[in-house]
């Protein structure tokens, strides 16, 4: 049997995403490490009531990590399109209150829910979800709003908060290169949430710049072994940033 996880298009790779799905969306905040083509395909598909797990809630009103000050495509377009019911994030709004994101505006109207999580706790909850650890104790957030309603235990002489694992139906991640077995390598700071998210969803879809033959990726630098990855999609415009100004692709 020849294994190939490469799918012909982003549209086909997200065709079974359903209303109410829980989706992990990669990225730190900017377009680096963001599966922009999959996000565009999800908007086109129009699925609703999504729960998005991501570092941000889509910074769509400010230019973060984007050269030239343009506004990149991110999951903010799904929020703006009314497709998102809930976001689990650490950095949900723009740093400047005068430039509210789509998420902040809808949040004020009570149209989206937020579960606010410290960034390290978010990453660890995802790692735990992928590694079969149901919950863990962390000192982060002890004595703050984050600990409210959660079990708190004194361990090693200090308060720790019990945090539960996160899992998802789908993860839309972005890597640099894949081979057709789904082994992935990343570039620079775009590892971010991609690597843990690649382990924590039932269906992991990786958007990459390039697919190569098995053997071409150095096994010493593969960060995501292929067993985690169900589908690989090649970007139509490798290495380009998809900006909102230019529409679907530039």
């Amino acid at each position: 049997m020849t294994v190939s996880k490469v799918w012909p298009s982003a549209r086909e790779a997200v065709a079974d995403v359903f209303d109410g799905a829980v989706i992990m969306m990669d990225g730190f905040g900017g377009p680096g490490g963001m599966a922009q083509e999959l996000i565009l395909a999800l908007r086109e598909r129009g699925v609703r009531d999504l729960t998005i797990i991501s570092n941000t809630a889509g910074l769509d009103s400010v230019s973060f990590g984007t050269p030239g000050g343009s506004l990149p495509v991110n999951h903010g377009i799904l929020v703006a399109n009314g497709q998102v019911r809930k976001v689990i994030a650490s950095f949900p709004v723009s740093a400047s209150p005068s430039r509210p994101t789509s998420f902040e505006l809808l949040y004020r109207e009570g149209k989206v829910e937020l579960e606010l999580v410290p960034q390290g706790t978010l990453a660890e909850r995802i790692r735990a979800g992928g590694a079969g650890v149901a919950a863990f104790y962390t000192p982060t957030g002890a004595g703050t709003l984050v600990a409210e309603g959660k079990e708190v235990r004194v361990l090693d002489g200090r308060e720790h908060v019990l945090e539960t694992a996160l899992k998802a139906d789908f993860a839309c991640i972005r890597a640099w290169k894949a081979d057709r077995l789904g082994n992935l390598v990343y570039r620079g700071s775009s590892r971010n949430f991609n690597v843990p998210m690649a382990t924590a969803a039932r269906v992991v879809i990786a958007e990459v710049d390039e697919v190569v033959e098995p053997g071409e990726l150095d096994p010493e630098v593969i960060l995501t072994p292929g067993l985690y990855v169900k589908r690989v999609v090649v970007r139509r415009h490798p290495g380009k940033i998809y900006t909102r100004e230019q529409g679907a692709a530039s």
């Binding site: 730190f28 905040g29 900017g30 377009p31 680096g32 490490g33 570092n55 973060f64 990590g65 984007t66 050269p67 960034q119 390290g120 706790t121 978010l122 990453a123 660890e124 995802i126 790692r127 640099w176 990343y186 570039r187 620079g188 700071s189 775009s190 590892r191 971010n192 949430f193 991609n194 690597v195 843990p196 960060l223 940033i241």
Partner: peptide, 29 residues
């Protein structure tokens, strides 16, 4: 500017000798 080389404020970094990269779970570990 390289979108795959940013700091936590979204500023673009230059590649520097001795630099290393890691994912978010390790960054917070």
């Amino acid at each position: 500017e390289d979108i795959d080389l940013i700091n936590a404020g979204g500023q673009f970094l230059k590649k520097a000798p001795g630099m290393s990269f890691f994912h978010s779970a390790d960054a917070f570990g």
